[in-house]
Amino acid sequence: MIWRFVARRTAMLVVTALVAGIAVYGALFVSPGDPATLLIGGGKPPNPRLLAEIHRQYHLDDPFVQSYWRWLTGILHGDAGQSLTYKDSVAHMISERIGNTVFLVGYAAFLIIVPAVALGSLAALRGGVTDSLVTVLTTALMAVPTFVMSVLLIWWLSVRWGWFPAYGAGTGFTGRLEHLTLPALALAASWLAYVTQVTRSAVRAELGSEHVQTARGRGIPERYVIRKHVLRNASGPIFSVSGVAVAGLIAGCSVVEQAFGVNGVGALLIQSAAKQDLAVVQALALITVVVFATVNTLVDVVTAALDHRVSLEARP
Rank of each mutant, 00 (worst) to 15 (best):
T146F: 00
W163A: 04
T171Y: 06
L133D: 04
W161A: 02
I154T: 12
M142Y: 15
Y167A: 08
S158T: 04
P145Q: 07
Y167M: 12
L157D: 04
L153W: 11
T146L: 13
F173A: 14
A169Q: 12
R176V: 05
G172E: 09
I154R: 01
R160A: 13
G170C: 08
L141E: 07
A169P: 09
L141Q: 08
T138R: 01
L137M: 14
F173P: 04
A166Y: 07
F173S: 10
G170I: 08
V159L: 13
L141V: 08
T174P: 01
T174G: 14
V151G: 01
L157I: 02
G162Y: 00
T138V: 10
V159R: 08
L152A: 11
L153I: 05
V144I: 15
R160T: 14
R160G: 08
S150E: 01
Y167V: 15
W163E: 09
G172M: 06
V144R: 02
T146A: 15
L133M: 13
V151N: 06
R176M: 12
F173C: 07
G170W: 06
F147T: 12
A169E: 07
V136N: 04
T171E: 14
M142N: 03
L137G: 07
L152P: 02
V134Y: 10
L137C: 11
L141I: 05
T135N: 09
T139E: 12
T171M: 11
A169D: 03
G175P: 12
S158N: 07
R176F: 10
L157C: 07
G170S: 08
T135H: 14
A169M: 08
Y167P: 02
T174F: 15
F173V: 11
A166S: 14
F173E: 11
T171I: 13
W156H: 00
G168C: 06
F164R: 00
R176H: 15
I154G: 04
L152H: 01
